[in-house]
């Protein structure tokens, strides 16, 4: 079966929290959603307190490293409906992708630390790598969308919401119980890859692909008085997009985010992918770029570095794949979370 390429529109913005010296969130959206150019979205929230003094950079590194990795993974999913391939892809997404992501982020952060060492007394002890990484602590939520596959990963707080083809709202990576207070898992954690949760959703029929995918930092969800507020927000966003169109929402989004940040006190960032419901598209129609809407920070304009994950699924994924055959054909949310 040949699947046509569905064009995605993107919507994104970020505002700085009230009283914050700088915005420690980062976000980006790239790609069209075609098989050769997967749509990749990511938002990251640097922890921001004094012990995480470089977390704004950490958030940026997280997004910047996620994008090419996820795009490469998305391209590797090209023929994923071949027998057994989907299972291997899922195993890779669950087990290997988080390790690769954490490794890349650590390399980036430690490299930055080496090039930007703080001025200290000569006799001062060299901080351990883990201590250096804490400076850059950040959360990350990222997603990749291709004509065949929708996969998302999350470490730490923040929200992923999906409006399915039939209008159903789901929050596939939400923890069973929200963490109390503002403690969060982090990319700077000792075995951070174990804390990465994954949402796996193969797309078997184009018409059943999600209608709307929303990624946001916790500055948004924590602003609502009601526990259901965030879900209501996403439903309202979907309704407004359907009723008034993307241009209207793009114009309104900065005000919404600013209002949320006044209550949460946090930097507030949203990145979303919208699949227009009634626009027939040719199979390989060019799509607009994923450039975010105006926000208070702008997404980097450079094309991401070449993908650094092999487009071939590693051979050793096969053994693990045997164990997960039963899960691979449907949605699966996987969580490996350490206690905090």
């Amino acid at each position: 079966m040949t699947l046509g390429v569905r064009r995605w529109e993107t919507l994104a913005g970020s505002v700085q929290g009230v009283g914050k010296r700088r915005n420690q969130d980062w976000f980006d959206c790239r790609g069209t959603g075609s098989g050769d150019d997967p749509l990749v979205l990511a938002v990251a929230d640097g922890h921001g307190s004094a012990v995480h003094a470089r977390s704004a950079l950490g958030a940026r590194f997280a997004v910047d490293r996620f994008l090419p990795l996820a795009a490469s993974f998305g391209r590797a999913a090209h023929d994923c409906h071949e027998p057994g391939r989907l299972t291997r892809l899922m195993t890779y997404a669950r087990d290997d992708f988080p390790r690769a992501l954490v490794h890349e982020w650590r390399q980036e952060a430690l490299g930055h630390w080496d090039r930007n060492r703080p001025v200290v007394e000569e006799a001062a002890r060299e901080p351990r790598p883990q201590e250096k990484l804490v400076l850059y602590g950040t959360t990350l939520i990222g997603a990749v969308l291709t004509p065949w596959l929708f996969v998302a990963w999350q470490i730490g707080d923040g929200d992923l919401a999906v409006v399915e083809h039939d209008g159903t709202l789901s929050r596939p990576l939400a923890p069973a119980e929200e963490d109390l207070g503002d403690e969060t898992e982090s990319l700077c954690g000792r075995e951070a890859w174990l804390s990465v949760r994954m949402h796996w959703a193969p797309v078997f029929e184009e018409a059943r692909a999600p209608r709307l995918v929303v990624l946001s930092t916790d500055g948004l969800s924590k602003s609502f008085a009601s526990g259901d507020g965030y879900g209501e927000f996403v439903r309202g966003l979907a309704g407004r997009l359907a009723e008034k169109g993307l241009a209207d929402v793009r114009e309104t989004l900065p005000d919404w985010l600013a209002q949320a940040s006044r209550y949460s006190g946090d930097d507030t960032t949203l990145a979303a992918a919208l699949r227009p419901a009634e626009t027939p598209l040719p199979a390989e129609a060019p799509a607009p770029s994923g450039t975010p809407a105006p926000g208070e920070i702008s997404a980097p304009g450079e094309v991401p570095a070449p993908a650094e994950v092999s487009e071939e699924i590693p051979a050793d994924a096969g053994a693990a794949a045997e164990r997960t055959d039963g899960e691979a054909d449907g949605d699966a949310d996987m969580e490996r979370k350490t206690e905090t």
Binding site: V51, V134, S186, S195
Partner: peptide
């Protein structure tokens, strides 16, 4: 109490130091 911190997984008890 009102500052976000990484959990214990960071290996450093950041919440306490502040």
């Amino acid at each position: 109490a009102s500052q976000p911190v990484a959990g214990d997984g960071s290996g450093v008890s950041t919440a306490k130091q502040s």
